[in-house]
C-alpha cells in the first residue's frame, strides 16, 4: 500500500449527515459533506423496502457541470438501479456511479447507512 492511499483510508471517517425524515422516498436529496479530499456535494437516494435502501453519489453532473444529480428520476434499467440526470438524461448506476451511456464517466460513490433514524456516511 502506498502512503497516499494509507493516508486516505486513515482520515476517512463515518459522519452523521441528516435525519431519515429529511430523505424523500424513491427519490433524491442533496447534502453538503466535508470529506477527506475536501468538501463534496452528495446526492442521497432512498429506496425504502429494497435490499439496499440508501445510496450516495456525486451531486455534480459531469455532462452539464451543474449540481443536480439528486433531482433526477430514480429507476431501473436492464435490472440495474439508476438515476437519470435531469439535464441531459444520462443514467448513472446507483451502486457505483457508472454512467451507462459512456464507459469513461463515473460519479464518485460513498458508503452510507442508517444508524437508528440517522443517515451516516463514510467520507
Amino acid at each position: 500500500m502506498t502512503n497516499a492511499t494509507a493516508a486516505k483510508t486513515m482520515t476517512q471517517t463515518w459522519q452523521s449527515l441528516c435525519a431519515r425524515a429529511a430523505l424523500v422516498p424513491f427519490s433524491g436529496v442533496a447534502a453538503w459533506v466535508e470529506t477527506a479530499e475536501g468538501p463534496a456535494q452528495v446526492a442521497l437516494f432512498y429506496l425504502p423496502g429494497h435490499e439496499q435502501e440508501l445510496y450516495a453519489l456525486d451531486h455534480h453532473d459531469p455532462f452539464s457541470n451543474a449540481n443536480v444529480i439528486a433531482r433526477g428520476i430514480v429507476g431501473d434499467l436492464k435490472g440495474q438501479l439508476v438515476v437519470a440526470s435531469p439535464i441531459y438524461k444520462q443514467h448513472f448506476r446507483l451502486e457505483d456511479g457508472q454512467c451507462l451511456e459512456d464507459d469513461s464517466v463515473a460519479l464518485r460513490s460513498w458508503k452510507v447507512s442508517f444508524k437508528g433514524d440517522e443517515v451516516w456516511i463514510e467520507a
Binding site: F26, V74, G75, D76, L77, G79, H91
Partner: peptide, 8 residues
C-alpha cells in the same frame, strides 16, 4: 423481470 422501480 425488472426490479419494479420504473424509469425516466
Amino acid at each position: 423481470h425488472t426490479p419494479g422501480l420504473g424509469c425516466d
